[in-house]
Design a protein around this nucleic acid. Sequence first.
RNA 1: GUGCCCGUAGCUCAGCUGGAUAGAGCAGGUGCCUUCUAAGCAUCAGGUCGGGGGUUCGAAUCCCUCCGGGCACGCCA
Length: 587
Amino acid sequence: MSNIFHAYKDKVGDILNKMAANGDIPQGLDLGRVTVEPPKDASHGDMATNAAMVLSKAAGKNPRQLGEALAGKLKELPEIREVTVAGPGFVNFRLANTEWEVQLQTILTEGIHYGDNKAGGGEKVNVEYVSANPTGPMHAGHVRGAVIGDALANLLKKAGYDVTKEYYFNDAGKQIDVLTQTAYLRYREALGEDIGAIPEGLYPGEYMKDVAQALVARDGKKWIGVAESAWAPVMRDFAVDYIMKMIREDLDLIGIHHDVFSNERVMIEDGTLDICLKELIDKGLVYQGTLPPPMGKEMEDWEPAELTLFRYKQFGHYEEDRPLKKRDGTWAYVMPDIAYHYNKLSRGFTTMINVLGNDHKDYEYRVGPPLSVLSDNKAKLDIVYCGMVKLFKNGEPVKLSKRSGNIITLRELVEEVGAGSVRFFMMTRTPDSELDFDFTKVVEQSKDNPVFYVQYAHARCASVLRNAKEMFPDADLSAAALGKANLARISSADELQLVRFMAGWPRAVEAAAEAHEPHRVAFYLHDLASEFHGFWNKGRDDGTLRFLHENDRELSMARLALVSAVKTVIASGLAVMGVPPVEEMHG
RNA sequence: GUGCCCGUAGCUCAGCUGGAUAGAGCAGGUGCCUUCUAAGCAUCAGGUCGGGGGUUCGAAUCCCUCCGGGCACGCCA
């Protein structure tokens, strides 16, 4: 709840308002573009504001002049110890050390909740991710989106949104028919029938044998020799339930638990699709019409047919309108997706985030226009696209092929490298970029491996605290106690730099949440770890910079407060990413 | 053909939604372990941010246009 940059932005704003009241600058200037940020180069100061440059035109003064005026006022604040005007008109300033002491205390007081903020204002947000259809276990390809979605949801919670983690699956389409057929075949097999090879088009995976075994255990041979209309719904429901349970177990392995599971069948059966369609008709965006034959394909016996069409064309993304129902009267693929978002609307969500693979690029064009119509333009749909993951072992690509059944499952991934490493590594790139996932690198214990590098910093903090316990057995080393240490002893440039960097954590959370980019947390932690490792090594060259000094308990406690804060901020970031922090490295 | 994403150090990638001298890791050069974990740190070298125009106090970032790469474009799901 304490973003020091916001606090100083307010102070700058107050000064500008006073200057306006005094007639130094015009009244009613728009301060919307004024920022207070850490300068790119730390040597410029602790904070920098662009106010003079942004306001110079409207104020009718040149930026340097205006900057000097602002600087003069800032200098009067006791909590600011140095102000300079630089470059094109940046006003740079440094804070009194006491300000950083307060920050340090804040971190220790707020603990893992440091960085929480209210940017979201309690707004309801629906984050939909994974949403794999129940046709098989989770595989490596699903993991990227799963991890990014989960971390994004955590991030938004931290930023003050009311987040629902949601999973949607299709349990009514053709894929499910195929699943049903496969299940029945395996069911007969489980009862002793020789079924030969699994026919092309059905699911060949071994897990379908488990499904069949479980059904035999429940129902015996009850479904042999009965009509398909009798066994089909049973096979279907049993297989879907069984596989969804498998998927949930897989997700549990990487610590992912959704709040809500939604499915297509329910919406078809309870009439949501019909109601939704009617609504779209009432809004005047649906009509009966015909489409030209598909381009680029020679179609024999092409006959135009009347279809239920949505006016996609007027939204600019498609050349033709697209059908909501097929010529045979059944729902087109888009319709359940549209109805599902209609359902989200009815549950009070206007902000909806979907985490999807890069291969679903036109999702927002299919669902977006109907959704804006249904919500009178109130709905905000943001699609976070995830790039493909390429698997490597010892630098060699791992060949995957669906045909040969050579897929790597989520379970294998987790068992080989560990859940925490999988999660962290998946966020070491921007979401939409391709990611090389190297099994060897992920477990490597070197700074080349960002997971290790960050965990090592955390473990070093823990190590110092352990050593402190031996050196000062009677001392209370809890965060609360350390916060009461004489923090004025934190005074070297290197120590203050560490505090300054940590003071940027709330800012990083806010920015990452707003951009829907959880990978920024991974980068922030890497940078923080780097600052910490750097300071650690300075203690090797210069003994006075070491954390623990047996003959100076006061200094030791102040430095332990710093160490505890670093540990806390790293843990806070890892919590967002869903990665358990490590207390001790071993191996 | 249309739409979206990308092009930044030799390689893999960041770049805080328009800020100051464009950053990190790997690879290469040079240093640092009797001291809290050297599983690390410091330092040097490496760049016309794909090309060209535009917007403004200011562009890797926004707009246009070329070049080059990736993905998606059914009355499939």
